[in-house]
Design a protein around this nucleic acid. Structure first.
Lengths: 190, 190, 190, 190
DNA sequence: AATGAATGAGGTTTCATTCAT
DNA sequence: CATGAATGAAACCTCATTCAT
């Protein structure tokens, strides 16, 4: 019930902060517990192991990210407008949740993300949305006739690198964000 | 002399493989030593600590990557041709050295890469080459008038995501590689 | 509560025995743990490090020693009687706790005791008692007019060397103990 | 020959300095070698092990100490004058060679000094000189009729504690040194 | 005789996980 | 449900000693 979700969320948030600052290995369960305001043993009531915690946290964040990306999306929008909406929503999510970006990136490039065949449902949701969208673009002749995996990955990586630049080097205005989206669009459109 | 370099190289190669498979934390020094065919203590004759080893290995790989990227580059080439040469060299390096790609990505997204102000000379070399190239493109009106950091990061991330796709999903022909380079070029050119 | 003190004491006693037998360096934490009946990691719940353990053990023993020295001491005693009481109490403490003597001497003559500015409160207590006592003796003309540090150190070292003799060479009767106290008194009295 | 003695001496001096600063355990053979200007392996041409080195160094220093103590000593001196000569020579040796004092004290209070039945010839020489001297004093009725071991140890410890005070707290004039010798003399004389 | 690279046992310390309370 | 003291395996790193040169 609500109590359980509250605890899980507290543990998630604590973990994000700490992994962000110190990496997976630099984040002991005892610290996660303390920052979450629970006892070390308590975490194990909600998660089987540290690995499980990380994997579930990954899903949790992916889910929030996908939700953010879908804001204002409708079938009735023009294809290009949907693209811009997706791209900017997605990018803004990372900009407003830098810890999430950091965690997801660490996860993706760690043995967790690479080895585990743990493409859970949230991953699946994201992938299917992107697949659907790119396929449609290609079929209707709006996008270049390139493998849709490639297009998807290309778009995704452009979002992430833009958000990283924003966070590390300098803040970008909304205008500049749109500029970058344009570059991407110019690249993929036919 | 040569002996020292041989040992260092053996340790580097061992480390790349293992970090690749198990991550930084999943790779104990004892394993690195065993795989490299030396005693555990021997590593400390060549590197001050595990951290130092990782940092130096990062430099080592960046160096190899930059070298690979510069193959066949000349001032006399057309700007666009230079871009394609850079992009494809760079991408091929990762495709032919998947462990290098994996290590560099893990490193970049770990506390090593984020916190340590260890932008060593090799990083500097890479950055300056890219900076020089994008600035020229912008100045001569070939590229869009966007912040050069942004262009650089955009190009870099496209290379990496393409290589990852190649390695994880399916092998791409040289033709397809060129296609992706085209997408990027279309995006950044004026 | 009591549990914590029990554990600490068990660790202390274990450490005293082992350092006594094998020296600081010859005493690994693993052995201390085993002899104390706890796991290696448990020690670190009570002490930050091996150094901390040694430093706290030093304080612990100094405290016990000072307590023993003060037994039967009153303001109403004659100065000379107080001296004999101090001296013999002090000496007897070491004779009855040879491991304590051994540990304290090793500590004092090791980098721990020499370098660390760890003159904690217990040291301070001992020093202030001695200082007070010698100063009074000098001021009232009972003791020779010599720097009080010197007198204090002189007395202290006589106690220690007497205890060592007792333990190493042969057992001394209470009568002989008093004889030595007399030698010291004859030396320092005016 | 001379070469061998030079090397040994260099190693001895290096060891004294380092043990003085860092203790036995804090002094690796590699450092001893470097400071002595030889290779690590070379030490093992002259000493069987680190323990052996320490034990021989102890003898070496005891020997120097005894030599220093005997300066200006003759049978023709008065007993009391001989005592003062011994005491002050001995004390001055430590004052002029603080590293020697430090090393000897560390050694004496370590497992080396306590456990090893290694009362070598130099120790024997020192002990026999003191024994002879105290026995004579007692027999001729100059000294108190107390066990001669006790007197010897008492004197020795007074020297050491005085030297330590001199080195740690404040420099003492020759006059003050004589004062302390007087205290000791007043203590032991009949 | 002298070197110093190499060894590997063993030291201190951390931390994921358990379980009695 | 919740706790947090206790565990002990395993990590990093040091250093006395050896041996090919």
């Amino acid at each position: 019930m609500a109590r359980e979700l509250d605890k899980k969320k507290a543990i998630f948030e604590s973990t994000i902060q700490l992994v962000n600052a110190n990496g997976f290995h630099g984040t002991p369960m005892s610290l996660i517990a303390k920052k979450a305001g629970v006892a070390a043993g308590t975490i194990y009531l909600y998660f089987d192991s540290k690995d499980t915690l990380m994997i579930e946290l990954y899903s949790y964040l992916r889910c929030k990210m996908v939700d953010a990306m879908l804001v204002n999306d409708t079938d009735r929008m023009e294809y290009k407008d949907r693209f811009f909406n997706f791209w900017i929503n997605h990018c803004r999510f990372y900009i407003h949740h830098p810890e999430a970006l950091c965690f997801l990136e660490q996860y993706t490039n760690s043995p967790y993300g690479t080895q585990q065949s743990s493409l859970q449902k949230d991953d699946a949701r994201f992938e299917s949305i992107i697949r659907e969208f790119t396929r449609t673009g290609i079929k209707t002749g709006v996008l270049k006739d390139v493998d849709h995996h490639l297009l998807g990955m290309f778009i995704h990586s452009s979002v992430i690198s833009t958000a990283k630049i924003h966070l590390r080097k300098f803040n970008m205005t909304d205008e500049e964000l749109k500029q970058v989206a344009c570059i991407v669009w110019d690249g993929i459109k036919k």
